[in-house]
Simulated assay, not measured.
Amino acid sequence: MKLTRTLTAALLASAALTGAAFAQQCETTLRSSDTHPEGYPTVVAVERMGEMVEERTDGRICIEVFHSAQLGEEKDTIEQTQFGVIDLNRVSMGPFNNIVEETQVVSLPYIFRSVEHMHNVMDGPIGDEILAAFEAHDLVGLAFYDGGSRSFYNSEKPIQSMEDLQGMKFRVMQSDIFVDMVSALGANATPMPYGEVYSSIQTGVIDGAENNWPSYDSSGHFEVAQYYTLDEHLIVPEVLVMAKSSWDSLSPEDQEIVRQAAKDSVPVMRELWAEREAESEQKVRDAGVEIIKDIDKTPFIEAMVPVYEKYVTSDKLKDLVERVQATE
Rank of each mutant, 00 (worst) to 15 (best):
G59I: 10
F66Q: 10
H67I: 00
H67F: 04
A69L: 06
L71G: 08
E74W: 03
K75M: 14
I78V: 11
Q82G: 08
Q82A: 09
Q82V: 06
F83S: 14
G84W: 13
G84P: 13
V85L: 10
V85H: 14
I86L: 07
N89Y: 08
R90H: 12
M93K: 02
G94Y: 13
F96V: 05
N98A: 15
I99A: 04
I99S: 09
I99M: 11
V100I: 15
V100N: 06
E102S: 04
T103N: 10
V105E: 03
V106C: 12
S107A: 13
S107G: 13
P109Q: 02
P109D: 01
Y110V: 01
Y110F: 15
F112G: 00
R113H: 07
S114E: 00
H119Q: 10
H119N: 06
N120F: 00
V121H: 00
M122H: 05
M122L: 09
I126F: 06
D128C: 03
D128Y: 05
E129P: 01
L131S: 04
A132V: 07
A132E: 09
A133T: 02
A133G: 02
E135W: 04
H137D: 05
D138Q: 13
D138H: 12
D138A: 13
L139Y: 08
V140N: 03
G141K: 00
L142D: 03
